[in-house]
């Protein structure tokens, strides 16, 4: 099982859905493509990337050598996420911060209990979770916040370097501004991170 790579955890959850519900769910996802609807996710700042995919029998790949044909009656909703922290912290955050939007997405799945109360929700996620056989992260030692901080520090430093040809006074002012911008973003990144369950 390779759900964990450094500071990142990869979760997969697959749930059955009655076919007639799929177009409604897709319409809901269209609303969520507007970036202003994603502000809670950005504020949480612990999901590198996530995706939802709907799987239908008529869209499954098919090759000549395959003698059987898929005929499953449900559509399936596959959720995949890369986040920092433990499974419990992640599901707790979903339950407490994103419960309304999460319910809008998962309420179409069979026997979904809702994200509140917490225990049936966790039981449902656990029951439908598929574990990874292989997991790769390009920067496993860095959390989402580590990456954002490093990018901000790097950009600020490049701006500072563009003032090198200015007078000493102007450069001193630019250096002070630079320190103000980066002083809370210089924490180290790297390392395998804490052991997570």
């Amino acid at each position: 099982m390779s759900n964990i790579r450094g500071k990142a955890y990869a979760m997969n959850v697959i749930t059955p859905m009655k076919r007639w519900k799929t177009p409604i769910l897709k319409a809901a996802f269209k609303l969520f493509t507007a970036k202003f609807t994603q502000w809670e996710l950005r504020k949480l700042s612990f999901i590198h990337f996530a995706r939802w995919t709907t799987i239908s029998a008529d869209k499954m790949p098919r090759f000549d050598a395959m003698t059987k044909r898929e005929s499953f009656g449900y559509d399936y909703l596959l959720f995949e996420s890369n986040f920092n922290g433990s499974w419990n912290e992640y599901v707790d955050a979903f339950h407490s911060v994103l419960s309304f939007k999460l319910n809008l997405v998962w309420m179409w799945s069979e026997n979904y209990p809702g994200s509140i109360p917490l225990v049936p929700f966790k039981t449902y996620i656990e029951h439908n979770q598929l574990h990874n056989d292989y997991y790769y992260m390009a920067y496993p030692g860095s959390t989402v916040t580590d990456v954002k901080n490093a990018v901000d520090v790097h950009r600020a430093f490049k701006s500072l370097a563009r003032t090198l040809d200015s007078s000493d006074e102007a450069f001193a002012a630019a250096y002070r501004d630079f320190l103000h911008q980066v002083q809370n973003k210089l924490g180290s990144n790297g390392g395998p991170g804490p052991q997570m369950s």
Partner: peptide, 10 residues
Amino acid sequence: IETTFLYVDS
């Protein structure tokens, strides 16, 4: 399989 919804925080 076409991804229905993708989110990247970067």
